[in-house]
Amino acid sequence: MLFAAFLLTNLLPNRIKGDSFAFYAIVLAAVLEAIAVVSRKRAVVKDLVFFMFALLIVWTLATSKLNLLREFLFAPPGKVLRQFILDYRDLVRHIFSSLGLILNGYVIALAAAVPLGLFIGYSMRAGRTATLISKFLSSIPPIVYIPYGIALLPTFRSVSVMVIFLATFWPVLSGTIAGVMYTERKYLDVARNLGCGKFRTLFRIVLPSALPQIFTGCNQGLSVSFILLTSAEMIGARNGMGYYVNYFSDLGDYTRTMVGVFLIGIVISVVYAAVGRLQKFILRWQA
């Protein structure tokens, strides 16, 4: 129904001289409609499509039809979509550049924080102190380390990796320590009763029971990492999604700026969705 409404809006006379890109928007709308029809049963998809139609209609009305917004800053949907397709190769390169950095810093941080957190939480009485310390350190926005990073490290990439590392390391560490310390006593009692050794208890009991909290730390790290990385890319990079947005807004190419903004939104949502899926699968034992 909204699909029809959208088509109708497109028939309205243009206020801006020749929005010759409406074709792209209509194709997108058709694809959305097709998705909605195919996934007849999934309410979430339906609602999403509904929302996107509403957005497209308002957007089209506000730009090409009524020209409420400044034409220079806000391109109509069709134009943005066309730019998306034209810049396809470049965009993929930027995505990979950004995700590569995130992955790098993130993986190193997890590889360091989880074992260290397990060790501290499990073997030392210092768990409480360590939690306080890592809470304190994780409360410092890692962006303040950037000056040090720039002074100490040779390249933009290494500074980014360091910042992402720090953004992830502390929350994951404190999550892991907390998770380990709050392992329910009854499970440890069963393990003792069965004569489990330290390592078996650690990996089969303590680690799984700490996983929910570890994941909470991971998610916190991930969202902060994305914020930091895009900001950092806007300042000092030659590559990446943040760079793309910043570069073209400096050039006054606001169609591409919008492309970049949408791209960042889409990429981050997809990453979250994928990570969320993975975690849900790993934690499928939870009620």
């Binding site: 009854k186 499970y187 009692d189 069963v190 003792r192 009763n193 069965l194 004569g195 089969r204 009991i205 799984p208 029971s209 996983l211 034992w285 939870q286 009620a287």
Partner: peptide, 26 residues
């Protein structure tokens, strides 16, 4: 504690992250 004196706990103590079979296996 020693496995030669095994205890059935009053509250349920199955490990939630293992299936029933895996609990026994464990």
């Amino acid at each position: 504690p020693d496995p030669s004196r095994s205890l059935v706990f009053q509250e349920h103590t199955l490990f939630p992250w293992m299936t029933v079979r895996d609990n026994i296996k464990f």
